[in-house]
Nucleic acid binder design. Structure first.
Lengths: 245, 245
DNA sequence: TGTACATCAGTGAACGCGCGTTCACTGATGTAC
DNA sequence: TGTACATCAGTGAACGCGCGTTCACTGATGTAC
């Protein structure tokens, strides 16, 4: 019941568990998640495949653990970038977006696991939803703060938060669920702003996906420069100016 | 040498070839491309697996044929939607975007093949590049036409094509390759416009991808309505008004 | 038009492979007296 | 502190599976005389 000193067995178990996860993550750097085999991971870690079952009841559980670890790592990186950035929303926006791209390029297999085509025969369980939302929430928070800040700023191109749309009035129920979820996090945003924030996040994802999977070949030569151009315009569309420091 | 009447053998060959492709496409509706096995396709078509080798030298060649067929089908659907839409760029924009979404939702496996995580161990050959560009080109063409039209339109929210960005002047080389490619198609666009068009296409893809792969669960309830909201704002950002008829 | 030979689509068995998972085992670590 | 038993991590063999691909075959279709 009380806190005992961990036994040698417990320490060893913890360490092997971590080694298996690490080996799986290392594999993901080179190959897609659907390729990821329990036997290969066991081989990498230097144990027999059946031994892995002492730590993960099945391959699906390994995938779930990976999914959570990845979402958390990405979320932590994004949150850290946000915290480390200057106080202005423009600087935070750039830091957050770049952090997402940097992590994704460094972990293409993990990116595919999180955001690519679903792994055949695997359905992500509930437990993955919360860590998954960390990144989205950080983005929404930056946008929300930018809105608050610019509400009391002088008028001009960036004076009015989120310009009105060409086909207004129908936002209606489209993101109602999203607004409701945000309340659970203590955020209260106009639907228009949430929709714009969601759009921006979607674009950031799309750009990274296209870059990573080779769909910009022939159109975009310098991925990093292009990405900066894109997030500058996204900030613009959100009613504030990106700040590249 | 000259045009002979096709022999029974030739007709049969043509027909079996088509059946195999059709069976493979049908499988894609239900399962991911990495799952797609030559043996399963052969089974569906009612022949022994080795017989497929009379038609496709390997599984990779089957995948390539599928890729081309899919890109062409999507491209044709998008071009048809463009042609069928009213003459205004706003109406064409809506028609084209909706066509992309409609096709994608109806063919999730094909969408994953075209735009999802790369199939492990398979690299798409050159022949797929041209059919792949049909969709992108249609979008760029609509945007280009909208620019031309609005250049002589009265000023206002949609009077000035593509508003200036918050961090201008650096577009520079980011999409230089794209501009060069466009010349081959007789299109000459300012870099800013091309960049905005590329961004919009990326967002459309991102929205469909998120919807299809379940990343909007909890945020977006009505995918179709949300999609329309998004493309209305994209048109807005491109300097014209979406026209939903 | 009729026959002899060549072409080629489809068959069925076989190959070697890697996979997820189960199971009885051995030997080291931990616990109770 | 020392011994007897329980726990449990890791082993190694085995299961059944589906895969891509090869190969010698048979029988129907096409071609040359």
């Amino acid at each position: 019941m009380a806190d005992r000193a961990p036994t040698a067995r417990e320490l060893a178990r913890e360490s092997v568990h971590a080694s298996i996860l690490a080996a799986a993550r290392a594999r993901l750097t080179e190959e897609g998640p659907s390729q990821l085999s329990l036997r290969a991971v066991a081989r990498d870690v230097g144990m027999v495949s059946s031994a892995v079952y002492r730590y993960f009841p099945s391959r699906d559980d390994l995938l779930t653990a990976l999914l959570i670890a990845d979402y958390d790592e990405l979320g932590a990186a994004v949150e850290a970038a946000d915290a480390a950035a200057g106080p202005g929303a423009g600087a935070r926006w750039v830091a957050v977006c770049r952090a997402i791209r940097t992590w994704s390029l460094a972990h293409p297999g993990d990116f595919a696991l999180l955001f690519g085509s679903p792994v055949p025969g695997y359905a992500a369980p509930r437990e993955t939803v919360e860590p998954a939302s960390r990144t989205t929430l950080t983005i929404v928070r930056v946008v929300a703060d930018a809105q608050g800040a610019s509400a009391s700023a002088p008028a001009g191109r960036h004076g009015s938060p989120v310009p009105p749309t060409a086909a207004p009035g129908v936002v209606g129920t489209a993101v109602a669920d999203g607004v409701a979820s945000l309340h659970a996090f203590g955020l209260d945003l106009p639907e228009e702003v949430l929709l714009r924030a969601l759009m921006a996040w979607t674009t950031v994802f799309g750009v990274i996906s296209f870059e990573l999977f080779g769909h910009y070949v022939g159109s975009v030569s310098d991925g990093a420069a292009y990405f900066d151009e894109v997030i500058a315009r996204l900030a613009d569309d959100l009613g504030f100016a990106a700040d590249f420091g």
